[in-house]
Computed example of a mutant assay.
Amino acid sequence: MIYGRLDNLSEVASTLPQTILEGLRFLAETDLVALPEGRNEIDGDRMFAMVQDYEPKPKDEARPEAHKRYIDIQYVAKGTELIGTTALSKAPNVVEDLLEQNDVYFLDGLKEESMLAMSEGTYAVFYPWDVHRPGCSAGEASQVRKIVVKIAMEPAKA
């Protein structure tokens, strides 16, 4: 997992994997307010952005999830929310498997979950081994605009 602020991108760019940097540059160079909700193409199935507008919900109503084929860059363009996170090894129970249809599965029984404060301008990168519980309320009512850049995992090179 990587956590940061988009306004620090120039300082951290040299430390990031190229595909993550490409996704963050998309966020930095795009008029995110003008993007329509739903899927927005970047590079076909290799990289695309999902735009979501919603009000965060109580933590116990948000479902922990993980992916297998895609990395998530979750970026908050407007509003505030919390995202819970833990290692996949600390989330033993799969309660719903939608990997074939939507590259997502939901878990429970989390251990050692940490909460990330996500305010405008922050991003978190979640790899397939990172469980995350997005969309949790930070206490006060807040309308959130989140852009999730989905980056296909590349096969390992021999």
Results as ranks from 00 to 15, higher is better:
residue 1 M to L: 08
residue 1 M to P: 08
residue 4 G to V: 02
residue 6 L to S: 11
residue 6 L to A: 07
residue 7 D to N: 12
residue 8 N to W: 13
residue 12 V to S: 08
residue 12 V to T: 13
residue 14 S to G: 15
residue 15 T to E: 15
residue 15 T to V: 15
residue 18 Q to G: 14
residue 20 I to H: 13
residue 20 I to T: 07
residue 21 L to H: 06
residue 22 E to H: 11
residue 23 G to L: 05
residue 29 E to C: 09
residue 31 D to I: 13
residue 31 D to N: 10
residue 32 L to H: 03
residue 34 A to L: 10
residue 37 E to G: 10
residue 37 E to N: 13
residue 37 E to A: 14
residue 40 N to I: 05
residue 40 N to S: 12
residue 46 R to Q: 14
residue 47 M to Q: 07
residue 48 F to L: 09
residue 48 F to C: 07
residue 49 A to F: 04
residue 50 M to N: 12
residue 53 D to N: 10
residue 56 P to E: 01
residue 57 K to R: 13
residue 61 E to Q: 15
residue 61 E to A: 15
residue 66 A to E: 01
residue 67 H to L: 07
residue 67 H to F: 02
residue 68 K to P: 08
residue 68 K to I: 10
residue 71 I to F: 04
residue 75 Y to N: 04
residue 81 E to V: 08
residue 81 E to M: 05
residue 81 E to D: 05
residue 82 L to P: 01
residue 82 L to I: 04
residue 87 A to T: 15
residue 89 S to G: 12
residue 91 A to R: 06
residue 92 P to W: 11
residue 92 P to D: 08
residue 93 N to F: 14
residue 94 V to I: 08
residue 96 E to G: 07
residue 98 L to T: 06
residue 98 L to M: 11
residue 101 Q to G: 09
residue 102 N to F: 14
residue 105 Y to K: 11
residue 106 F to L: 02
residue 106 F to H: 01
residue 112 E to M: 07
residue 115 M to G: 13
residue 121 G to M: 00
residue 124 A to I: 00
residue 132 H to S: 02
residue 132 H to Y: 02
residue 133 R to T: 10
residue 133 R to D: 04
residue 133 R to I: 03
residue 136 C to E: 06
residue 138 A to R: 03
residue 138 A to F: 03
residue 143 Q to F: 14
residue 144 V to I: 06
residue 144 V to W: 09
residue 146 K to D: 00
residue 148 V to M: 07
residue 151 I to C: 00
residue 153 M to C: 10
residue 154 E to A: 08
